[in-house]
């Protein structure tokens, strides 16, 4: 499904977030990335979902090279990749239902999208997706009034509604309690197993990753440190992966700091 050769992303200031990555992920595979904070996992996911342009190297999705995609073809490629973002990336003031239905935007015409804002369509589907993540009662709630974990589940429901061929989940369970976390990860793997969707996740919970995924890739400083089956991952391997990281556990990436919803718009001059 994915193939990368020397994939590199350099941010201004010579920050090599992803550095010469070679990678191959087959259709229907379930892969977990682990690695310390700042390893470049989020950046890699933004490359994989066709948002960022690689600084160097090549990337193929489903046999097509990403660099050649643009316009409608690019949109079609994005439609087939569903992303669950670390920071949820929901539209704060919109009711939950529209945030969930936004997963359909790649399929809908603009007119249908606008009409749905006035009077939601495909409500049953949205409701079912929310039921799967356990918050059906929040269908018409305002998104910014939900708790962090509930918002994360709205983001997952959006990806479910998109019904993509590939699911990219960047820390999908960072804000929910451990039991729910396991439940959601199992939901994703069940979906992948039942429908043959490719599932690529990125987890800070190493135990959960080892217990659930047949393939574990360790990422550090933008490079692949190891690519093993869970049984082959030893304590020394993990120690090498997280060496030098603060003992208190991974910190949030600087750019991932949550925006205060109240100040996400800068104030306007008023005369």
């Amino acid at each position: 499904m994915y193939q990368a050769e020397g994939l590199t992303k350099v941010f201004p200031g010579e920050i090599r977030a992803v550095d010469g990555l070679d990678l191959k992920i087959g259709a229907g595979e379930r892969v977990a990335f682990i690695g310390p904070s700042g390893a470049g996992k989020t950046t890699l996911f933004r490359l994989l979902n066709c948002t960022l342009k690689p600084t160097a190297g090549r990337l193929w999705v489903g046999g097509r090279e990403v660099a050649h995609l643009h316009g409608a073809a690019l949109r079609a490629a994005r439609r087939r990749i569903g992303t669950i973002y670390q920071q949820h990336n929901l539209v704060p003031r919109l009711p939950v239902i529209h945030n969930v239905l936004a997963g359909r935007l790649g399929t809908w015409s603009t007119t249908r999208a606008l009409l749905s804002l006035a009077r939601p369509v495909e409500v049953e589907e949205a409701h079912r997706a929310l039921q799967q993540v356990g918050i059906p009662e929040k269908l018409y709630a305002r998104t910014d009034e939900l708790s962090g974990g509930q918002q994360q589940r709205v983001a997952i429901a959006r990806a479910l509604l998109q019904d993509p061929d590939i699911i990219l989940a960047d820390e999908p369970v960072s804000s929910v309690d451990p039991t729910l976390a396991a439940g959601i990860v199992h939901l994703l793997t069940d979906i992948s197993r039942a429908t043959g969707k490719t599932l690529v996740v990125n987890l800070h919970s190493v135990d959960l990753a080892l217990a659930t995924f047949p393939r574990i890739i360790g990422l550090r400083d933008g490079r692949v440190l190891f690519d093993l089956a869970p049984a082959a991952v030893r304590d020394e391997t993990l120690a090498a992966l997280y060496r030098g990281a603060p003992a208190t556990g991974p910190a949030e990436g600087a750019l991932d700091a949550p925006l205060d919803p109240a100040t996400s718009c800068r104030p306007l001059p008023r005369v």
Partner: peptide, 15 residues
């Protein structure tokens, strides 16, 4: 939680 969703009940319309 399983992939097969429970049967869809009638969903209330928007407020």
């Amino acid at each position: 939680m399983a992939w097969q969703a429970p049967a869809v009940r009638a969903v209330a319309g928007p407020p």
